[in-house]
Amino acid sequence: MAEEPFAAPSTKPSIVRIVGTGEGIVRLIGDRGGRWSDIVRILSDHLARAEGFFQGERVAVDIGERSLSADDLQQIADVLAGYNVTIWAVRTSNPHTHRMVQEIGLAAEWLDKPKEDRPPSANKGERAQWEVHLGRKGQPAPIAKPVAEFQPPQIIADSIADQALDPEGGAVERRSAAVAESVAETKRTAIPPALTPPPEESEDEVTDQEMILAPPYIYRGTLRSGQVFRHAGTVMVVGDVNPGAEVISGGDIFVWGKLRGIVHAGAMGNERAVVCAIDFEPIQLRIAGYIAMSPKTVTSEPGRWFWKKDAVEKPEVARVMGRQIVVDVWDRE
């Protein structure tokens, strides 16, 4: 890929590089040495020198192998936000950093390092990963939508959750004006309103086309209470999703273990998304704009705790059928 530095540092080879990649701008932060505070300062200097050149840009931040805490990441997001630059993805080859990135709600991307966790399409080209491909089934999907139109799943998820709790559609307190704005935008464009039938026009083009988002992500390990896992593509959890944990995915969700938390598949409005689990007992289940609560939640029967039920010893699958979520035993259809 052709990389041309926009703002080369004046003296020694800098640990911060800004590289253009055609449509977007990728900001590279080398992992060789340097204290994090210095890196953030240098980056800030670069932005100051560029005098608004990057205003309103969406950038990817490449962190390399460096291990960062959520605070460190927030720091850099704040610096960028100060220059009106938003991060659309963070690239890292460090598992800890990767987790932290997801924790603070940014999109995370694997670099080359941990081979087994790399999404299969990672070599297609750096940019390809986060573009929305629209194309016929079985055909190689042409790049149709620029990255700028990619909506991070958590905002949509939030808006759906808000609407679900607030059927009147009244004002819901937001953390910041910026988020409120983007949610409002999302409501207009991307998703059908929660719990109401989707508008007719959403049926036409997208339904007979396969929507491919980010590559699938395999999460190994147990998601515990308080943990939220967000990914724009399909998510596979090899382990359990405990009560109190959440998985939010733009595509399908597969749990190779016990599903007992909250899952939201097709969080960007894809009603064809499915949720499968070996042991299927979620507290709450959302697919696109639909919400289902566990029918087993309230029971007066002694000895039946909320995650216990008459054991269906088979994996189950949930999908949207006839404008509601239907759960079936998984079998060869």
Binding site: R224, S225, G226, Q227, P243, G244, F306
Partner: peptide, 17 residues
């Protein structure tokens, strides 16, 4: 108790992280 268990689960997660 389910509530104690839920909190314990979160603490385990925090400790591991």
């Amino acid at each position: 108790e389910v509530s104690a268990l839920r909190d314990a689960d979160k603490v385990i997660y925090l400790l591991e992280r």
